[in-house]
Simulated assay, not measured.
Amino acid sequence: MNSYRIPEIAKQYTEYDMIQNHTDLPDFPELRTRLLFAFLNGNSKFSSSSELYTLATSLVQLALDTHDLVTASNDVKEKKAARSRQLKVLAGDYFSSRFYNLLAQAGQIEMIKQLSNAICEVNRLKMNIYMKMKQLKLTAEDYIHLTVEIKSQLFLSFSDFMTEVYDQAWPDILRSYAKCEVIFEEIFRVESAANFRDSWGFWHILQHGTKEERKQLHADESDQTRLRTLIHKYNITSQLYQMLDSHTKQLQSKVQQLESDKLISELFHIGEPFLRFSAKQPKVLEEI
């Protein structure tokens, strides 16, 4: 059985001085990468390719996430910011090229096709959520669902591989982990007025708030006092904690139904950050 070392291998593609000195990369998709490796490595049919498949998928995901950080406007004139933007574009393109190169060298043409189709689906989902956001037709529930689907698509392309051994467990557990990951990230977005825009809390207040409160959401983002008042009124942080706790418990139940004790142990280890975070949830959440 292979040991998990994907982040270390990926560093040869991500740790370039030019990138590190002039721009920031998104976080490595650690949770979904570990999850995919655990399932593939536990399947004797694919264990020999588990490292290659997982590495290639993680690089594609990193490429997509890097391009997501590129600002929509190219109006930035300041040299440092302009260079950072350009390097994000180039870095994302480079990570994508490495995915093609790795799989092509291994003769994995069918896998290139599957992941390429998944990339198309990711972009379709992103356009869907973007249009709903632009038209202010996105609900908080839509936001969670679509974000989970966007995070899951590349990894869902392996569903056919998993069916023989894990039946329908792979897509269900993958989406459950992705949902916990999304909610986990949303809790931290509440802490910043700049990051709150288009978060779950933003869409929740837009959906349930008064006409005046909806106007306040679109007002100056620097007015943190006004924003904190809305966050407190609608219990945004406590709702997110409750959602994380609920979905973590559901996830535990799904994992325990798997037949492999080794896989169960690995999946609980992967989900440990969610469990620890839920356990530390304060009894009384003060939203300020």
Score class of each variant (00 low, 15 high):
residue 133 M to C: 12
residue 155 F to S: 04
residue 102 L to A: 05
residue 112 I to Y: 01
residue 79 K to I: 12
residue 153 Q to C: 09
residue 118 A to Y: 03
residue 106 A to V: 00
residue 168 Q to P: 07
residue 96 S to M: 11
residue 110 E to I: 10
residue 141 E to S: 11
residue 150 I to W: 02
residue 113 K to G: 08
residue 200 W to D: 03
residue 118 A to P: 04
residue 156 L to V: 06
residue 186 E to L: 02
residue 170 W to F: 05
residue 177 Y to E: 02
residue 87 L to Q: 03
residue 190 V to Y: 04
residue 84 S to M: 13
residue 197 R to S: 12
residue 125 L to F: 01
residue 111 M to C: 08
residue 194 A to R: 14
residue 164 E to P: 10
residue 114 Q to P: 04
residue 157 S to E: 06
residue 82 A to I: 02
residue 86 Q to R: 14
residue 141 E to A: 15
residue 107 G to E: 07
residue 152 S to F: 01
residue 196 F to D: 04
residue 110 E to W: 06
residue 80 K to I: 11
residue 177 Y to I: 05
residue 155 F to L: 09
residue 119 I to Q: 00
residue 177 Y to V: 07
residue 125 L to I: 01
residue 184 F to V: 00
residue 169 A to T: 03
residue 95 F to L: 05
residue 99 F to M: 09
residue 143 Y to I: 06
residue 167 D to R: 15
residue 128 N to P: 08
residue 132 K to Y: 10
residue 162 M to W: 03
residue 122 V to F: 00
residue 106 A to M: 07
residue 172 D to W: 01
residue 141 E to Y: 11
residue 182 V to M: 05
residue 78 E to Y: 10
residue 129 I to L: 06
residue 112 I to D: 02
residue 91 A to L: 03
residue 118 A to T: 04
residue 112 I to A: 07
residue 183 I to S: 03
residue 126 K to D: 02
residue 170 W to I: 01
residue 151 K to E: 12
residue 109 I to G: 07
residue 171 P to A: 01
residue 128 N to M: 15
residue 113 K to V: 15
residue 83 R to M: 12
residue 101 N to D: 14
residue 162 M to V: 09
residue 191 E to T: 11
residue 93 D to Q: 09
residue 195 N to S: 15
residue 105 Q to T: 10
residue 172 D to I: 14
residue 95 F to S: 02
residue 161 F to T: 05
residue 198 D to A: 11
residue 146 L to G: 04
residue 122 V to T: 01
residue 129 I to W: 01
residue 134 K to N: 13
residue 114 Q to N: 14
residue 184 F to D: 05
residue 181 E to R: 09
